[in-house]
């Protein structure tokens, strides 16, 4: 489906909200939304669940969509918001789990992370690097995390990222610059800690 087709469909949907039109919107955006959710949540199952929540929100709000933003920008914005909500819910659940364990309500055993050692004569595996990268991403401030995820990982242009985040182009440039700097700092710190 080319861009013109998507725009035609988007205009059609705003004027006439029928199940067929909704299906067209979903099919046009489902892969992108799924990927955005996955990049934030890093689990296919959670990403699919959140992507469905995104389209349920779209379904509920299509009538209220005023058309002052491009439909795709709005859907991507909903995807980012829902993903961040899901991350917060997960963190809250994790915290509650820790508290329950601390006060003895939950005696399930949490396996400690296996210690990783970095040796000067041996390079890390790609999966290990990815793990460090994800941990470093999680340490970034939320705005830098979003900008880096959308722009560097998901491949949106700076302008598209600015539109989705509802900010200016220069802010996105600054967020990405500071995000990359922060990422390098956190990675250096982590690798120095595990170096033999």
């Amino acid at each position: 489906m080319n861009d013109a087709q998507v725009f035609y469909d988007e205009a059609h949907i705003v004027s006439d909200h029928s199940p067929l039109d909704f299906k067209t919107v979903v099919e046009a955006h489902q892969d992108r939304v799924l990927n955005i959710c996955f990049k934030f949540l890093r689990s296919r199952e959670d990403a699919e669940d959140t992507a469905q929540e995104v389209f349920m929100e779209v379904y509920r709000s299509l009538d209220g969509f005023r058309g002052d933003a491009q439909l795709s920008t709005w859907i991507h914005r909903v995807a980012v918001t829902k993903s961040l909500d899901a991350i917060r819910r997960k963190k809250r659940k994790k915290r509650m789990g820790s508290v329950r364990q601390l006060i003895g309500f939950d005696d399930s055993f949490i396996e400690p992370e296996s210690p990783l050692n970095l040796r000067p004569d041996k390079l890390l595996e790609e999966s290990e690097r990815k793990m460090f990268l994800n941990k470093a991403m999680d340490k970034l401030p939320e705005n830098q995390h979003i900008a880096l995820t959308l722009c560097q990982i998901e491949g949106f242009t700076y302008q598209e990222t600015a539109d989705i985040m509802g900010t200016s182009l220069s802010s996105v440039e600054s967020l990405i610059f500071r995000g990359k700097k922060g990422l390098k700092r956190h990675l250096t710190q982590s690798y120095e800690e595990i170096l033999d």
Partner: peptide, 8 residues
């Protein structure tokens, strides 16, 4: 290692 990780 940092460079290689950033490339990911």
């Amino acid at each position: 290692e940092v460079e290689r990780t950033m490339e990911l």
